[in-house]
Amino acid sequence: MMRENQRVLVLGGTGSIGGPVADVLRRRGHQVTCLARSESSQQALRAAGFNTIRGDIRSPDDWTGRAGEFDAVINAASTWSDDEAQVERRLVAKLLQAFSTPDAGRTVIYTDGCWSYGATGDTIATEDTPFDPLPEFASSIETARQVRDSRQVRGMIIYPAMVYERDGGVLEQMADDARHRDRVRIVGSADVRWPLVHRMDLAVLYALMLERGEAGAGFNGAGIVSMQVGRIARTLATRFGKPDDLEVLTVDEAVRDIGSWAVGYALDQQMSSAKAVRELGWVPEHTDILAELS
């Protein structure tokens, strides 16, 4: 069943993931409303032509009463805080309640991530690969399971790779180092591999899931199966005229200098999106990150 002209509520519509998702959905003919936490976010979203609802993902009771106005909700929001797991559990529980219908006529798409697979090494993770998350990110497994197992919504999960844009997303810290420091910092080893996806390619995958995905489905989102972090960092350093002698941080040093999320940067991973290509017709356009960064 192809779902067209959906009324979609996007959570995180000013973010690195949610912003492109909102844009792509609108271009594909869907009616998009974005949750706006602040007055400035609301003004920016309205200036971009989106409908808005004022609200915070920390307080879903304040705005989920309007769920009846929408056919679908896409959660691409994050608090990036120590209590994120608790916030997500409350949020998803409320979304499942608010969007439930006897015939599962509404859609809930939940964003998990590649870190749920843990370090895959030479194994290329697929949607059938067992999860092995770091303790810091383990709670999302159960939250995602609740979405997929719901019989009152069409629940789906997306597992994005490391999301990037030129000098942004997961590359923002490296690019900032290349501009302002003597050396670019990486975590763990130059040989660590990341699966990657450009944020615009990822936005298209969300749209295809909304339009074509089956209830209970999960899809990996990786436009690039893997790339050594050292190659990425050296490419950035060269472009900004810095030496390619990288500064390698231990995980503990990275958490101290960059933040708690840096623990995931040391995971050596590979990830395939063959399922999304096969079942949804997803065709990523950004598949040569080194050329983009040069």
Rank of each mutant, 00 (worst) to 15 (best):
A119S: 10
E142L: 14
G155L: 05
I157A: 08
F137C: 04
F137G: 00
T120E: 08
L134A: 11
T126I: 07
E127A: 03
P135A: 09
T129G: 07
Y159R: 10
D132S: 15
I157E: 09
T120S: 13
R145V: 01
A125H: 02
P135K: 05
G121N: 05
S140W: 14
S150H: 05
R166L: 12
T120C: 10
P160R: 00
A119T: 09
P160T: 00
P133R: 04
P160F: 01
S150I: 04
R154G: 03
V163F: 01
I124L: 10
S140Q: 14
G155N: 02
F131R: 11
Q152I: 01
R151W: 07
P130Y: 09
T126G: 09
R166P: 02
Q146K: 12
D149N: 10
R148F: 04
R145I: 01
E142T: 13
G121P: 00
D122L: 15
E165V: 09
P130M: 11
V147S: 02
Y159D: 01
Q152A: 10
A138I: 02
V163I: 11
P135V: 03
I124C: 12
F131M: 14
E127N: 05
A144F: 02
A161M: 12
R166W: 05
R151D: 12
G118P: 06
R145L: 14
D132V: 03
D128Q: 12
I157G: 00
Q152G: 07
E142N: 12
R145C: 07
E142P: 02
A161I: 07
E165T: 11
E142W: 10
S150M: 06
D128I: 04
P133T: 04
V153M: 07
P130N: 09
V147N: 01
I158L: 14
D132P: 00
V163K: 01
I157K: 00
G118F: 07
F137M: 10
I141W: 12
Q146S: 15
R145S: 14
E127C: 06
V163E: 01
F131A: 14
Q146T: 11
P133C: 08
R154Y: 03
Y164T: 03
E165L: 10
P130C: 11
E165D: 13
R145E: 14
A144H: 03
D149K: 08
I124K: 06
M162R: 05
E136I: 11
R151L: 13
Y159A: 02
A138C: 04
A138M: 06
P133E: 05
M162N: 15
S139P: 02
V147P: 01
R166Q: 11
I124H: 03
V163A: 02
A161W: 02
P160V: 00
E142Q: 13
D122C: 08
V147H: 01
Y164M: 05
G155R: 01
I157P: 00
R166E: 12
A119C: 08
P135F: 06
A125T: 02
S150F: 06
